[in-house]
């Protein structure tokens, strides 16, 4: 880091000296048209140009070093502008050179990420409780119909699901889960 900073400071100070050389003939009242005026003006212009170029070189070198050290993000690649793509004519055809340019532009684009497609396991996980509930309900109805004569007496009747699911319901759940 020291060398880049030293280079930038040196070049910036030299730029100040160059600017002073440019304005010195006016500030110090040199005789007009004298050799000293010409020498200072030309030398000042040269120093200014050289200093600006040196500042640019040191700044670019420092930036490249920072990128190489990972302190600055990498420069992103320029993506093709879709608005610059050619429009087809009235017959719906594009120029062959335009088509080649479009093909190159599309080749340079990175492929889009693959869409998230649900797997069969996701589908099973979603449908499993529904199917189990349907099967349990069906089995409970079937059993209730077959056992209806035994529950003819009101003192033996028990409301459905009064104390949670019946034994048949739990069996149906288990069977349905095993089937899946």
């Amino acid at each position: 880091m020291t060398r880049y900073l030293a280079g930038l400071i040196t070049a910036t100070a030299a730029l100040g000296a160059g600017v002073w050389l440019l304005i010195a003939p006016y500030g110090l009242d040199y005789p007009s048209g004298s050799t000293a005026s010409g020498v200072d003006a030309w030398t000042g212009a040269l120093v200014c140009a050289l200093s600006l170029a040196t500042i640019g070189v040191w700044a670019r070198a420092w930036r490249a070093q920072l990128r190489a050290d990972g302190l600055l993000p990498e420069r992103q690649a320029v993506r093709p502008d879709r608005s610059a793509l050619p429009h087809p004519d009235e017959h719906g055809r594009a120029d062959s050179s335009d088509a080649a340019r479009v093909a190159r532009a599309l080749e340079e684009e990175p492929p889009p990420p693959p869409p998230q497609v649900p797997t069969i396991e996701d589908l099973h996980g979603l449908l499993k409780p529904l199917v189990a509930a349907l099967a349990a309900d069906q089995m409970e109805r079937t059993h209730a119909q077959s056992a209806q004569p035994q529950n003819a007496h009101p003192q033996n009747a028990r409301p459905r699901n009064a104390h949670g699911p019946s034994t048949h319901t739990q069996t149906a759940y288990t069977n349905a889960e095993e089937d899946w």
Partner: peptide, 23 residues
């Protein structure tokens, strides 16, 4: 890249020497 920067600084030194001798 740094070589051009060092060359620029060397040119600044040379211009300074020229400016001393110019009058």
């Amino acid at each position: 890249m740094s070589r051009w920067g060092i060359a620029g600084i060397g040119m600044i030194f040379a211009i300074g020497v020229w400016l001393v001798a110019a009058p």
